[in-house]
């Protein structure tokens, strides 16, 4: 069970941003959604979370059609996301940002734990203690992404959508991030990840979907995708097979650069 998107089409005027796309993100797995800029990845996220109404298609969560639900109702069914362009609550502190989300969850569900302890646990888990009292709009992007992740985890999601979470992060932040990501998936959350950092994608994802100009280009495991010629042409970059393997081993020679 998890998230299932069926035959979604979105048009902006004459431009087809998503053309009959289906994908699935299973619980306990990290599913990657990759493709060049303008491929329709963020649009897909907006359709899934309800911020963008599709012209056709359905979104299902754990087998139930949620296409007609308002964004906040989808969130209450266990969907959370982060944004490519940060959407932090800038006039609140980092702690307050997380607290708002935790309190929101607390209001809906009769959990024994109050909002404040949830907040503190998340601050600890994501190493945000040092910046807990900083206003969110004064954070650098990398830290801002960690706060958005903490905020979405405060909703205890069953499906977590992450929109380019590693952009703007330095290496140690990305390492932290992929560790948390794996933990979250292991807890049974279905994670859908949009990302350009291919090292990160290939190291954490269980399955990949590739979009290009609103069309589904390929789908499969990381190895399958890396081997797919169409994906390499469109996105990953072409490696010319006709080249002499020896040259490939020492690319500087091929370029005629002397050392």
């Amino acid at each position: 069970m998890g998230l299932e998107v069926r035959d979604v089409t979105v048009r902006f005027g004459g431009h087809t941003a998503l053309d009959n796309i289906s994908l699935r993100a299973l619980n306990g797995q990290i599913t990657g959604l990759i493709g060049p800029n303008g491929a329709g990845k963020t649009t897909m996220f907006n359709v899934i979370t309800g911020l963008q109404a599709p012209h056709a298609g359905k979104v299902e969560l754990d087998g139930r059609d949620i296409s007609k639900l308002a964004p906040y109702k989808r969130a209450r069914r266990g969907m959370a996301r982060t944004f490519q362009r940060l959407e932090l609550f800038g006039s609140l502190t980092v702690r307050e940002n997380i607290h708002v989300a935790a309190a929101q969850f607390k209001r809906r569900h009769r959990t024994a734990e109050r909002a404040a302890p949830t907040t503190e646990k998340l601050i600890e888990r994501l190493n945000l203690g040092a910046i807990a009292e900083v206003r969110a709009d004064s954070l650098p992007t990398g830290q801002g992404r960690m706060v958005e992740l903490a905020r979405s985890l405060a909703c205890r999601p069953r499906v977590l959508l992450l929109d380019e979470p590693a952009s703007g992060q330095d290496e140690s932040e990305t390492a932290d991030f992929s560790r948390v990501l794996r933990e979250v998936a292991d807890e049974g959350v279905a994670v859908l990840l949009v990302e350009h950092d291919m090292d990160l994608v290939m190291s954490v994802c269980d399955e990949l979907h590739v979009l290009d100009f609103g069309k589904k280009l390929a789908q499969g495991t990381c190895a399958q995708i890396q081997a797919d010629p169409a994906v390499r042409a469109a996105y990953l970059g072409e490696v010319d097979d006709d080249l002499d393997p020896a040259v490939l081993a020492d690319p500087d020679d091929a370029l005629g650069v002397s050392r």
């Binding site: 964004p71 969907m79 609550f89 989300a101 405060a154």
Partner: peptide
Amino acid sequence: GEFGKRLLALKDSPAACATLGMNH
């Protein structure tokens, strides 16, 4: 209070509020 935080959150980003399950 919590209400005030929610109001500021709503001012800062209605979209994020919705995706946290807040009925704006």
